[in-house]
Each structure stands twice: as C-alpha cells, then as structure tokens.
C-alpha cells in the first residue's frame, strides 16, 4: 500500500491505496464520495467524470496514484458555499435534465468543464462535447437545454432530435 494525498473539493485528503486502485474507487470507497458513479467501468459512459487539476477525466480510467498531489473536484463540491445548487445543477433541475439520474454527476461535471472552456457553446458544440457521456434514458435533449440555459442562452427554442 502507498500513501496518496490529494485535495478533493478544497479539502486535503489522505489514504492508503494499492497501485491498481482506481481514482473512482478511492473517491467512493475510501472518501465516501459516492456521487461519482461507475457506469460502464470501460471509459465509455462518463458517469465517473471528475476534474483533476481543472480538466475533466474519467475517474474509472485513472489510477488514484496518478492523482497524487492533484486538485480533484467531484459533484459533491459543485454546490455553492451556502449549499444551494450551482447554476448548472439548478439548470438541470429547471429543465428536467435527468430521468433516472445515474449519468447526472458525470453530465454536470462535463458541462462544467465545457462552460469553463467555452462559456457560450452552441447546441452542436454541447452535443459534441458530451460524446463521452452516455444517458441510457436518452435524456439528452433536456440535458442540452439545461446546459444552454446554464450558459445564459435561450434554451426553449431548440428542436428535439
């Protein structure tokens, strides 16, 4: 076992992991941050997306030890300081950007990464950016609407595909 240290949602966290411990396993099993989901475990679905040093990554396809010393952000750290939903989370609620909700943590984290890179994405850019996030309820349309709304753009007008 090797000691690993990382800042998770602003707090310094430590743990003991094996070489093969995945980042998502460390977050969920050791830190109890079960908001990050394991959907496919094959880096296809994106339910496990978190930010490492500000970049979206699939935490099921990164070793915990690769994040040693890194700043990690998960869904649990997304709410505003007073505990209220942040702009993206609120938009998902307002636009019903979820059905079963399993993919939602990854969707929100990918949306946050997108809006950081591109504050006013077009509908096409949003759909392209979400290529690595799968919603098996096929709730994409309202997810795209929510992200458009979170970026301060008119969401009502987009047509269903």
């Amino acid at each position: 076992m090797t000691e690993v240290t990382m800042t998770v949602n602003g707090k310094l966290m430590r743990g003991e992991v094996e070489g093969r411990t995945l980042l998502v396993s460390f977050l969920r099993d050791q830190l109890g941050l079960t908001g990050t989901h394991v959907g496919c475990d094959t880096s296809q679905c994106g339910a496990c997306v978190v930010h490492v040093d500000g970049k979206a990554v699939k935490s099921c396809t990164m070793l915990a030890l690769e994040a040693d010393g890194a700043e990690v952000a998960t869904i649990e750290g997304q709410a505003d300081a007073d505990g209220s939903l942040n702009v993206i989370q609120q938009a998902f609620q307002d636009h019903h950007g979820l059905q079963c909700g399993f993919c939602t943590p990854g969707m929100v984290m990918s949306a946050a990464a997108l809006l950081k890179e591109n504050p006013k994405p077009t509908e096409d850019e949003i759909r392209h950016y979400l290529e690595g996030n799968i919603c098996r309820c096929t709730g994409y349309h309202n997810i795209v609407k929510a992200i458009l709304a979170a970026s301060g753009q008119e969401a009502a007008a987009i047509a269903a595909e």
Binding site: S43, G46, V49, K55, V57, L114, E131
Partner: peptide
C-alpha cells in the same frame, strides 16, 4: 480522438 475526458489523459 475519443471524447474530451479521454483527450485530457
């Protein structure tokens, strides 16, 4: 290549 999260790694 892949998707944004894959491209970051």
């Amino acid at each position: 290549i892949g998707d944004p999260a894959v491209r970051n790694r």
